[in-house]
Design a protein around this nucleic acid. Structure first.
Lengths: 336, 336
DNA sequence: AAAACCGATGAAAAGGATTACATGAAGCTC
DNA sequence: GAGCTTCATGTAATCCTTTTCATCGGTTTT
């Protein structure tokens, strides 16, 4: 039926060990190597990865668990991680958790059964807290969300600083009643909320934060409610891309002009960010760097399992566009 | 070291076969089943999937090869396919080919080595043509792009019809010089081009098509060039999301008003489609249906390997927005 | 009461590769 | 030329399960 290593060996007139060595770059004379390679080509032999993994005890597989691949940040991240993984000859298992602790637990079990070499994971708020007790039997790199216990390597945007940058920017263009709207499931939102709080406090501004499900609809509803009150804010910071879109929709509904009536800003720079309304002011995340750093942390951890955990915080870039400035032109105006 | 099925068996005082049967829902007395389950919990045993797959000769894995996970259509698709796969107790291997035949060939080899149960694939133009010769040793479902030989199951949008719908829509609002801009790597673009040609022809309109790399920058450059000529078109159809963004950018550069000066329309409805400029008129693809149908085709094929190939073409939905109509309101206006 | 059957269980083979160890030839040293 | 090392090669054990087959008690059939 399916051709195995034995068939190749027989055809080439060598032992199975020699065939295996041809794949593993073991010591094989040029002559035999050529005979084996011919036999492989002739038979169309493909090594069975399950058998190889079983025997060699190397899964050559890493896991990537994200909340939802459809969120632009995770989409971009998965692409980077995948490229990097395949470049290193490893496979990637991708899982969407929807921030549900049950799904996370299920997928963690799957990762164990796959005997993954390591896992890159953006854990939900709930799992993050429970993570201190019993770690999984493989290296773990947390992305986008810090590990409170400090037991695990992690990498992500400096959310505290980035949000503070947004607040200061809105303040610099004369806004004083700046509200923040944050997601209620991720721990990223917590960091951003803290950055928002400390920046408003240090500038002597009032602060008001709202927590809703991390999607456009929920954000739109909440903002509509907030803006129906008599004392209208003049600035809004949204803690995610989708929520920012919800804010834009709410502004349209209310027929408020951006940025004249309300200045708005958020996170993640996308192809379309400059084309929505007057252009959206955002913090651009260095998603390529985050992905590559996650891989680096993982491979370093494999080399030195006992080394102390590292926490890498990368800086975002503020991209100012029409939503927080008088419309002056059509080109991006990067500002630090 | 790591706990195996033997350890569990020993601890429960049964044979390894019985432990295996507990996992496989084989015939086990309630009493023994409970003892085994206790032993599993106590030892934290996790079955080794590599060993299981090797012995059972079932990889329980399906492959998904797309051009680039970052394209919204593929992002959404992968999410659907992944959910469906995990629901059926299967794993998913995801690969980005970037429409490169070399990468496609490499990943096809990988799929063989993984002994995947089946593959869902959006092949590049080049691979699609070469596909007739020697098929892979597993069922194949093509998405988004038809199989010319008719040898493989496939599912996707009816691109011909969808593009014709766009042309007729532009014609209905009084446009007569409608140009089309298409990607030069995917076969989807070919179908859309054909739909564009036949619709313009049957309406007695002139036609002019441009083929560029499927990204916003290339589309923008090309459109800038086209619109610098004296006889300006009054309508543009873009064959992808990203290219449509390029068109919008070009319009901004040229300070042309949409839709007054030029009406534009394209493919794929996204969260932000209604918020870009005056709102983008697009054909919404039934991506959920496409993904689920791909899985259905695959599983049907597994049941009946010899059944004739099926070609499923789904209808898109035209969503008319400001980019092709006088701005009348802010809500979507679905039209057939 | 013997024969046939049944369902739960265990012993052992099988699945397809890698790898530890043994072997034997060739090349060196003295 | 005896003894030692080196290197390519082969033999067989091994990785961890699932699955086949045999066994065994107990029930039903004749």
């Amino acid at each position: 039926m399916t051709v195995g290593i034995k068939d190749v060996a027989q055809r080439a007139g060598v032992s199975v060990a020699t065939v295996s060595r041809v794949f593993g770059n073991g010591p094989v004379s040029p002559e035999l190597r050529e005979r084996v390679e011919k036999a492989i080509a002739a038979t169309g032999y493909r090594p069975n990865l399950s058998a190889r993994r079983l025997r060699s005890q190397h899964s050559q597989t890493i896991g990537l668990m994200v909340a939802d691949i459809r969120r632009p940040f995770f989409t971009a991240l998965s692409r980077v991680v995948e490229d990097e993984a395949y470049r290193q000859g490893m496979r990637l298992i991708l899982c969407n958790t929807d921030e549900s602790p049950e799904r996370e637990a299920m997928y963690l079990r799957l990762m164990e059964e796959e005997r993954v070499t390591g896992l890159i994971w953006a854990p939900s708020r709930g799992s993050l807290e429970r993570l201190s007790d019993d770690g999984p039997p493989f290296p773990l790199v947390l992305i986008d969300r810090g590990s409170p216990s400090g037991r695990y390597d992690c990498v992500g945007l400096d959310n505290h600083q980035a949000t503070a940058t947004l607040v200061r920017h809105l303040h610099a263009i004369g806004r004083s009643r700046i509200v923040g709207i944050f997601g209620n499931t991720s721990s990223t939102a917590i960091d951003r909320h803290l950055g928002y709080l400390s920046a408003t406090a240090s500038l002597g501004l009032s602060s008001e934060a709202f927590f809703v499900a991390p999607n456009a609809e929920a954000a739109e509803r909440e903002i509509l409610k907030v803006f129906s009150r008599p004392d209208r804010p003049d600035g809004v910071i949204a803690s995610s891309n989708l929520m920012l879109l919800g804010v834009v929709k709410a502004m349209r509904r209310l027929e408020l002009r951006t940025p004249d009536d309300v200045a708005i800003a958020g996170f993640d720079n996308e192809t379309w960010s400059e084309l929505v309304g007057p252009g959206l002011t955002v913090i651009e995340q260095p998603v390529g760097d985050i992905g590559r750093m996650a891989m680096t942390l993982l491979f370093d951890r494999l080399k030195a399992p006992k080394a102390p955990a590292r926490k890498v915080m990368l800086t975002g870039r503020l991209i100012v566009r029409g939503s927080t400035a008088p419309v002056t032109g059509l080109v991006d105006e990067p500002v630090d």
